[in-house]
Design a binder for these strands. Structure first.
Length: 502
RNA sequence: GGGCGCGUAGCUCAGUGGUAGAGCAUCUGCCUUUUAAGCAGGGGGUCGAUGGUUCGAGCCCAUCCGCGCUCACCA
């Protein structure tokens, strides 16, 4: 049975492979097999040659290099752990099987059985006595040839480097640049350790709605969608916060969620429209307590996943070891600029901002101006892990007023390498204050601030029933993974980053 | 959104006004321990798209599409 060609970007390379496929089928070979009993992996064999030498192994993987020399051949296959060479010759596997092998291409998935041996030139290989085509590849993969010199330095020729194609066709990227798998494995371990740390504290992993009639918990523009049967507008969540706090009202005293949030905003090195966020709320605790928890949690992840708290990130040595420095935002601004922003009027702050070439829209309130001043003067210098504490009230509509300092809230953000990695507060649990904060936000919204918070009456009602004092935390997983794995772009830590349609 | 840059064979790239190239990949032949295997020979292109300038455009100009870097925005 000949395969119909229904491939839009057919070329002669694909054409030829389909012809091979048909030839295999004429030979009654099934080019897409059902299973293969793998019992060994490339790097295990190479790392423990003494144990494997002379033993029969069954390995499987993708052919990544082929060297055919008439009636004998060498090839490399790539499995989950790396690459290994196999050798086969016609005398040993028979003409029929050798013909099947000759119809194989780089990219095919194959299974090989045979004895482990070392070639004349010293490469640990599998001397195959059977060869099975498991899945025929009809689309050629970009071939990158590798050379490892005697010092172990790897040179890669013609590496697949087009970033656009790598992101759009991540499956090819993973085949051809397998070292990136490690980043994603690290990402997975980080999330696993995060979850196991939080579970060890007996916090409940909760699932809250992605589709929300009122979005909230952050300042961001949402994605809008529509439910047909209910005939109502729904928003993809921009944060989990308000639902998780409802669970605290309901009597859970520790809840967390690791989930996707969606923000309809720009895309760049640090922003993907959907991203993974950890949010955690713990009853009867405040933001001081939460700072210690963050230190403990991050130290734990560093040790469990990387075995150290010391990292080299973009050439700088970073140590996550607790305790982190704690700096008051307004004190530090005063130290650096000489201005007491709490007492100063807006014009005094604007004057300094202008001298720093910060562009203003003219709509900023005092809290926003203070935040801008912080970003311009202090944030870039926060290289080692640092907590900035006590933020202006106007930019923190869900945080509790500071117990001592007028105009501020009990909020902290953690910074590393000048970048924010987490955000936390003593949560606002005064329903009357919360309603007036929402009303302030509504004013901003009415004035055109597209990111202003919506009024969530049901959330206020929940607070009216009474929410215990609570500490809350948000931690952006993608950016955290970027830091720990030293990746320059969020797209390098997300398997399938959002791309424009072609 | 602004600035800079990129888009040529499956991959990596050269080609700055005069017949579209190289290496790898691929095909044919030879080759039973090779390893960027080798030797000999061959095929493969809407040069991102559209329009313009020119006797002549991959190259110059304009517009558009896509991507990258960067700045702004995104607390």
């Amino acid at each position: 049975m000949e395969q119909e060609l229904k491939i839009d970007d057919i070329n002669d390379l694909i054409q030829r492979r389909i012809e091979e496929l048909n030839e295999l089928q004429k030979m009654k070979i099934t080019p897409y097999q059902y299973s293969f009993d793998v019992n060994a992996f490339s790097s295990d064999i190479k790392n423990d040659f003494e144990k494997f030498e002379g033993k029969n192994v069954k390995i499987a993987g993708r052919i990544m290099a082929l060297r055919r020399m008439g009636k004998a051949s060498f090839a490399h296959i790539q499995d989950i752990k790396g690459r290994i060479q196999f050798y086969l010759k016609q005398d040993e596997i028979g003409e029929e099987n050798y013909k099947i092998f000759k119809l194989s291409d780089i990219g095919d998935i194959v299974g090989v059985c045979g004895k482990v041996f070392k070639t004349k030139t010293g490469e640990i290989s599998v001397h195959s006595d059977s060869y099975t085509l498991l899945a025929k590849s009809i689309r050629p993969i970009p071939i990158a040839k590798e050379v490892v010199d005697e010092n172990g330095n790897k040179t890669i020729f013609d590496q697949f480097v087009d970033k656009e194609l790598r992101y759009r066709q991540r499956y090819v990227d993973l085949i051809v640049n397998p070292e990136i798998k490690d980043i994603f494995i690290k990402r997975s371990k980080i999330i696993t350790e995060l979850r196991s740390f939080l579970n060890s504290k007996n916090y409940l992993e909760a699932e809250t709605p992605v589709l929300q009639p009122i979005y909230g918990g952050a300042a961001a523009r949402p994605f809008v969608t529509h439910h047909n049967t209910l005939d109502m507008t729904l928003y993809l969540r921009i944060a989990d916060e308000l639902y998780l706090k409802r669970l605290i009202v309901g009597g859970f005293d520790g809840v967390y969620e690791i989930s996707k949030d969606f923000r309809n905003e720009g895309i760049d090195r640090t922003h993907n429209p959907e991203f993974t966020m950890l949010e955690l709320y713990v009853a009867y605790r405040d933001y001081f307590w939460m700072m210690e928890l963050v230190e403990e949690m991050i130290n734990n992840i560093c040790i469990k996943v990387f075995g150290t708290t010391e990292f080299e990130i973009e050439g700088k040595k970073i140590n996550f070891k607790a305790p982190w420095q704690r700096i008051s935002m307004t004190d530090e601004i005063q130290k650096i600029t000489g201005l007491d922003v709490l007492k100063a009027n807006e014009n005094e702050i604007i004057k300094i901002l202008k001298s720093k070439n910060v562009e203003l829209t003219g709509k900023e309130n005092k809290g926003k101006l203070i935040d801008l001043l912080f970003e311009a003067t202090i944030q870039p210098n926060l290289i080692q892990p640092t907590f900035i504490i006590d933020y202006p009230l106007e930019i923190s509509p869900l945080a509790k007023k500071h117990r001592k300092k007028e105009g501020l809230v009990e909020r902290f953000e953690g910074f590393v390498m000048g970048r924010e990695i987490c955000n936390a507060f003593s949560e606002l649990n005064d329903p009357i204050d919360q309603r007036s904060r929402f009303e302030e936000q509504k004013k901003l919204g009415d004035e055109g601030d597209e990111e202003a918070h919506q009024i969530d009456d049901d959330f206020v009602r929940a607070l009216e029933y009474g929410m215990p004092p609570t500490a809350g935390l948000g931690l952006g997983i993608d950016r955290f993974v970027m830091l720990l794995t030293n990746q320059p772009s969020i797209r390098d830590v997300i398997f399938f980053p959002q791309m424009r349609n072609l």
